[in-house]
Amino acid sequence: MYESNGYVLDESPARLGRLEPTPMSERGDRDALWTRLRRDGYLYLTNHLDPEVVWEFRRYYFAALAAAGVTAPDADPRDGIAGSGSIDRGAYRRILYDEIVPGDEYQALCAAPAIRDFFAWLFEDEVHLHRRKIIRHTVPGEAGIGTATQAHYDLVYLREGSDRVLSMWIPLGDTPIERGGLAYLERSHHRVLADEAAGKLKRPAASITADLPALAEEYDSRWLLADYAAGDVMVHSAHIIHAGLDNTDTEGRMRLSTDIRYQRVSDPIDWRWQEHWRWDDGL
């Protein structure tokens, strides 16, 4: 049973499916990747990053937040086992927003050659990494609206720049479906693109809904899921609808992930995304 914000997804073949990994035969073919991106709205690149780099960053992140009570005291930070006590919210915010987010370790991960060079090759241009990079973890057992990322598409938050920005979502550690990875609404970007062109969707930045089953019915589409492994990444357009699943891991492991955005330097850049992410930045 798969859930998001407490809503149980319809598991019928017409409403639920699997993401299709990008074949290795296409990974070095720029035209094939753009064809796939335009058709599907995403590239599922398995083993794109060195898994050990990913695991070491996961260890760094949870070790840094241990002082705030985020992790179980006797657990290896790499495992990311959730603590059972109360969290020191002041310490959590200070460590996350003042140390981790602007830190060298996080920047090195997000601008690693396997990422920056890939986007430069794909765009055939110099590229820009938006400084506002979001990193978050989810705790097993939390349910209800607000516990998982609601259905949305990224352009609503990036309207002051180019719509040709690409997002990369990176699971930081193994993220099987039950640990709450991202789900994508199959080929929803085609309808979003048409509605954007018709001026129907220019509204204040907001998620669409927490009710993923109802949205799949509205779009007559499927939510696509995957068991992500450390080293996998998702590259997706600014128009495809996606959402997070609830973390139902029975061993207490937290889901950790980051989403970052790259674009051509020559395209307009949303000025609001050029400061480090904070909980109160209004975006």
Rank of each mutant, 00 (worst) to 15 (best):
Y92W: 14
G141S: 06
W34M: 02
T250N: 05
A230T: 08
D117C: 00
D10S: 15
D79G: 01
D211Y: 07
G69I: 07
I100Q: 04
I240R: 03
S237W: 01
V54C: 08
S84M: 13
P171F: 05
L45C: 10
L215R: 12
G103N: 12
P140I: 07
D220P: 03
D76S: 10
D29M: 13
R187F: 06
V192K: 09
I134C: 01
V127P: 00
D104V: 15
F57C: 00
H128K: 09
D220E: 15
G252H: 04
E11P: 11
R15L: 11
G146Q: 13
D281V: 12
D117Y: 05
E126N: 13
A198P: 07
R30A: 06
P73E: 10
D154T: 15
T71V: 06
A120N: 04
G199I: 08
T250Q: 09
P23C: 13
L193A: 15
D267V: 12
Y61I: 06
L158K: 06
I260R: 01
T46K: 14
D270T: 06
F123Q: 06
P204M: 10
Y61L: 02
E105L: 02
D249H: 02
T71E: 00
V139P: 00
D259W: 11
L225S: 08
D79W: 05
A75C: 13
R132P: 11
E217F: 13
R261E: 04
A214S: 13
S162R: 12
M1Y: 12
L245I: 01
Q107I: 01
A120Q: 13
M1V: 13
T35S: 14
S266V: 01
D40L: 03
W34P: 03
L256S: 00
E126V: 09
G28L: 15
P51Q: 03
Y2R: 12
R131K: 12
